[in-house]
Simulated assay, not measured.
Amino acid sequence: MTSANTSQNILDLQGITKDYLLGKTKVSALRGVDLSVAAGEFTVVTGPSGSGKTTLLNIIGCLDRATSGSYKLDGEEVGNRDFDALAEVRNRKIGFIFQNFNLIPVLNVAENIEFPCVVRRGGEGKAALRQRVEALAEAVGLKPYLHHRPDELSGGQRQRVAIARALITEPKLVLADEPTANLDSSTSEQIIDLMLRLNRENGVTFLFSTHDPRVVSHARRALHIQDGKMLQGEFRGAAPHAHAQAS
């Protein structure tokens, strides 16, 4: 599971646990997860609902903190940082794609895409930023829709906006939590193909959580989590449908 050259890993998790209190009862959502992702990978974490997929992505995305364990992102230990420091890491190094798109309804496509950079308040000028927005919109097939608001777009188009928004900060890692859950099969295939192309042509590193066998079948690397534990074994390359379900 761990890449041979850890110096090239974007992500290294060792012994990650996450416990919650449900009333007075301790619930262990993650139980000693190890995971390494190298730069340029297209990796899927599969598992049934309640297996710990979303909890794992929330920790990797610096939206939550592990109870114990080591988390290194781009060679830096980030698991022991406070939430303000995690927010800075999240804004600089991580892009997100959500199953519900999470677009801002009052902003148009261009404004939604550039929003993470506006929040970051970097030194980039407006003209340069808008040029990058237009280039990304063209890359995801949305150039004619820059001035449309989310309620004027289809589900697939909204997810394309979310993908462009995730890439605008040029992150080290893009996380996708069930990115096809609210899309029909045809649109899902288009979105998967788009992300594969961005991975192949631009070297974007993707890590997905999903229980959708269509996504799993396209993964170059797939791992399985169950009851908060990462199971031994993985497969690489596009897998047959039956293999995807069994893994």
Rank of each mutant, 00 (worst) to 15 (best):
N5H: 06
S7F: 09
S7E: 15
L13F: 02
Q14L: 11
L21V: 14
G23S: 06
S28C: 11
V37I: 09
V37G: 03
G40L: 07
T43G: 06
V44Q: 07
T54P: 01
T55R: 03
I59E: 10
I60N: 09
G61F: 06
C62F: 03
T67E: 13
E76W: 10
V78L: 02
G79T: 04
D84A: 13
L86S: 12
L86C: 11
A87M: 07
E88N: 09
V89T: 09
R90D: 12
K93R: 10
I94L: 14
I94W: 10
I97F: 06
F98Q: 01
Q99T: 04
L103H: 01
I104N: 10
V106I: 12
N108R: 11
V109R: 04
N112H: 06
I113G: 15
P116R: 08
C117Y: 00
V119H: 03
E124D: 03
G125Y: 08
A127P: 05
A128S: 13
R130T: 11
Q131N: 06
Q131W: 04
V140W: 00
P144Y: 05
P144K: 12
L146D: 01
P150Q: 12
E152L: 12
L153G: 13
L153S: 11
G155S: 07
Q159V: 07
V174L: 05
E178L: 04
E178N: 05
P179D: 05
P179N: 05
L183I: 12
D184M: 02
L194V: 11
V204N: 07
T205I: 01
L207H: 14
F208E: 07
T210N: 09
P213R: 02
R214I: 14
V215R: 10
V215N: 05
V216H: 08
H224R: 14
D227E: 13
D227A: 13
K229I: 15
M230N: 10
G233R: 00
E234L: 12
R236I: 10
G237V: 04
A239S: 15
H241P: 04
H243E: 15
Q245T: 12
